[in-house]
């Protein structure tokens, strides 16, 4: 794996390898000393053109726990419309010897350009681009789903398994969501069935080619007994300029997850959210804080998954081992 640009680039074996590697990484994180020497001497640059403290910290923590040198490069505020800046920045990072660039950008496809336009030789990891992809979010979601819903269930890691047979509902602003796009591709690759639930205005034209069902009615989908419900963040600004929905109240009434809807889920079903949550809009406090909510765990799993991804793109060719536990190659 040279880069991680899109969840759609991963086949089943690669995806399972990442999840298994993440499981091994997570196991090391339960020790007193969490730091591994694996990426000593390597440089990882967090190149963020868009604010996302939580994603940046997650990648930074992952890289540091693998002993990589981390440079945080916040390009936000530096000319957004002038395209030259991405190229210039990339070439600067190349000159500084970046082995991997973790990029978050407001423009869909920016990581793809960074990887393929000849601006940098390093590995590129997409940390979210526009409304396109957020592959590490999908991987951490898949990892969380597998721990809770596959094998023995309840927080164990069924190494080697995929998500065959699971049904996941993804609810909310699909149109603008890179999380939804990445999850639809990855969960399908791993054998799960995905149902997208949203008002028709928040589903893209062209969704018919996606490997997912589409429903406009959350209650109907809940009646199907999904194994997991993933709530997407809905931005209040989406009401302006043409208006994707008439009011927050009507949105919540149709698509919000509250205690009443929570009660309709099967007992084993889990509730997910990529954060940050709009409590009271797409998810009520009851649902967000319920026992079956795994939102906080998703954050922790994000570090393990990003450790796995950085390890596989940077050290994969050399196949080093972490205390003999990781033998997977990229």
């Amino acid at each position: 794996m040279k880069h991680l640009l899109s969840a759609g680039d991963l086949d089943r074996a690669q995806a399972v390898t990442i999840l298994d590697t993440a499981a091994a990484m997570a196991a090391t994180q339960e020790r007193q000393i969490k730091k591994l020497p694996t990426l000593r001497g390597r440089t990882v640059v967090n190149l963020f053109f868009e604010d996302s403290t939580r994603t940046r910290i997650s990648f930074e923590t992952a890289a540091k726990r693998l002993s990589a040198d981390v440079i945080n490069f916040s390009a936000k505020g530096s000319s957004v419309s002038k395209g030259e800046s991405l190229k210039d920045t990339a070439q600067t990072l190349q000159a500084m010897g970046a082995d991997a660039v973790v990029i978050r950008h407001h423009a869909s496809g920016a990581p793809h350009r960074l990887a393929h336009a000849g601006w940098t030789a390093g590995a590129v990891v997409n940390a979210g681009d526009g409304t396109h992809q957020h592959p590490t979010q999908a991987l951490l979601d898949a990892y969380t789903l597998r721990r809770h819903l596959v094998g023995l269930r309840g927080g164990t890691d069924p190494v080697g398994h995929d998500l065959a047979g699971l049904h996941v509902a993804i609810v909310g602003d699909v149109l603008h969501s890179r999380v939804a796009r990445s999850n639809v591709q990855l969960l399908h690759t791993l054998g799960a069935r995905v149902t997208l639930v949203a008002p028709p205005t928040l589903v893209p034209v062209g969704v018919e080619s996606w490997t997912a069902d589409v429903s406009y009615h959350l209650d109907d989908v809940l009646d199907q007994g999904p194994d997991a419900v993933m709530m997407l963040r809905v931005q209040r600004e989406r009401m302006g300029g043409g208006g994707f929905f008439p009011s927050p109240w009507e949105y919540t009434r149709g698509y919000g997850l509250d205690a009443r809807r929570l009660a309709r889920l099967p007992e084993h079903a889990i509730v997910m959210h990529p954060g940050p949550m709009n409590r009271g809009l797409e998810i009520s406090a009851d649902a967000a804080d319920a026992d079956r909510s795994v939102v906080v765990e998703q954050v922790a799993n994000g570090v393990a998954v990003r450790m796995a991804v950085l390890y596989l793109v940077l050290a994969g060719q050399e196949q080093p081992t972490v205390d003999g536990q990781i033998g997977a190659s990229a």
Binding site: P204, V205, G206
Partner: peptide, 17 residues
């Protein structure tokens, strides 16, 4: 940003109907 259809939906580029 590009023609609105199957490809724009996948690429996450705002569609031009």
């Amino acid at each position: 940003q590009m023609h609105e259809g199957l490809v724009s939906a996948e690429l996450g580029l705002a569609g031009w109907p």
